[in-house]
């Protein structure tokens, strides 16, 4: 589904990603771990198309076609979803209206007619229950006055509504208490399917107790320096990132 080859990216002329390779197949969950400043969030932002991130080398293919050539909205329409580390508050834009607009633009891109209002509301209700998102929050302005946990849960609700092929969760676990983490994880597990894939960007192993990954990668200094299965995460937890730094730098 996703094929990243030799990806180099920089922000304000500072090189962050320095030759990253990653293959993600449909049905898989990949966790990307790494110390602060290793380039984890940069990867998410580059894939979503944030302007400040400049790709200097390498390629990213989504189902064989060049993802980097697309605008952020076209990437989303092709099925890429970034759950933001810091979701933005937009007072005055209702959550529901926002989702309706997003869904109808994605559908129009695929040549589908807009959803009937009734079907849309049915879907909203169904997905709210699936990811345990409070109906009262869904009707409010987008993230306005939401707690950190509520914002993260809204990201998962949006993910459920938009049904992307590839979801990238950028430190969705950060700032969540254990109950919120469980709810978010349960939501993601419900959404896992044979035709979609997840990339979990996280600093801690904690999330991976709830969402069990097929692969764990360690990102350090802009490259994936180690890949393995979920046991790698446990090893990391035990030995700390210094262990990686030492082995790589040596």
């Amino acid at each position: 589904m996703l094929s990243i080859k030799n990806l180099h990216a920089s922000v304000e002329d500072k090189a962050i990603l320095k030759g990253l390779d990653l293959e993600v197949k449909a049905g898989e969950v990949h966790a990307i771990m790494g110390p602060n400043g290793s380039g984890k969030s940069t990867l998410g932002n580059v894939l979503a198309g944030r302007e400040a991130y400049e790709v200097t080398e390498g390629e990213v293919l989504l189902d064989g076609s060049d993802l980097l050539a697309l605008s952020p909205e076209d990437r989303a329409r092709e099925g890429v979803f970034l759950a933001f580390q810091y979701p933005i508050e937009i007072p005055g834009v209702s959550n529901i209206n926002f989702l309706k607009t997003a869904l109808s633009e994605i559908r129009a891109y695929k040549g589908l007619p807009p959803m009937e209002a009734r079907d849309f509301l049915k879907k909203v209700k169904e997905k709210q229950q699936l990811v345990e998102f409070d109906a009262k929050l869904a009707n409010r302005s987008l993230n306005e006055g939401f707690s950190g946990g509520e914002k993260k849960r809204n990201e998962i609700f949006q993910l459920a509504m938009l049904e992307p092929k590839l979801a990238i969760l950028d430190e969705t676990d950060s700032g969540l208490d254990i109950d919120a983490l469980r709810i978010v994880a349960r939501g993601v597990n419900q959404l896992r399917a044979d035709n979609n894939a997840f990339i979990l960007i996280t600093h801690y192993q904690r999330l991976l107790e709830y969402i069990v990954p097929d692969f764990v990668h360690v990102l350090y200094n802009g490259r994936i320096v180690r890949s393995g299965t979920k046991e790698l995460a446990l090893e990391l937890e035990e030995k700390g990132y210094d262990w990686i730094k030492e082995t790589v730098d040596a």
Partner: peptide, 20 residues
Amino acid sequence: FYLRARGISEAQARVLLVHA
């Protein structure tokens, strides 16, 4: 960017933000 990352065109995102 947040709106565009959800598939909303830049023009429509501007409309939403001015509305807001």
